[in-house]
Amino acid sequence: MLNFLEEWSFFGGSILLILIGLYGVITRKNMIKILISLALMDTGVNLMLVALGYVKAANAPILNSVVQTNTAAFVDPIPQALVLTSIVIGTAVLGLGLALVIKIYDKFSTLDISKIRGLKW
């Protein structure tokens, strides 16, 4: 049981987070909720990328006064570097989406995408 949890909790959790976000993007009608679902998917993908580079009982990739040489076991630093930039971009793109939502609300005074004329779903 403990072994199963250790092996699958991070992968399973991040995949479920991606799927919850996907379900939200498809079914919700409120534009802010759609953007929240996109943020959830983003977090799920980042969590999965970092989990793929994890090595059991290894150190964080930083040399310090405790881990003094590079012969010690480290986790993979490349996914961490990629995720670092991905989080910042994710927030900026969400801001762009929210700016569009504010403008759409100014024009149609509603957040419900099914009530906006010209869009059907």
Binding site: E6, A51, L52, G53, Y54, V55
Partner: peptide
């Protein structure tokens, strides 16, 4: 392929 959790081969 994708490695198991905690067994990434660096």
């Amino acid at each position: 392929t994708i490695n198991k959790f905690g067994q990434a081969d660096l």
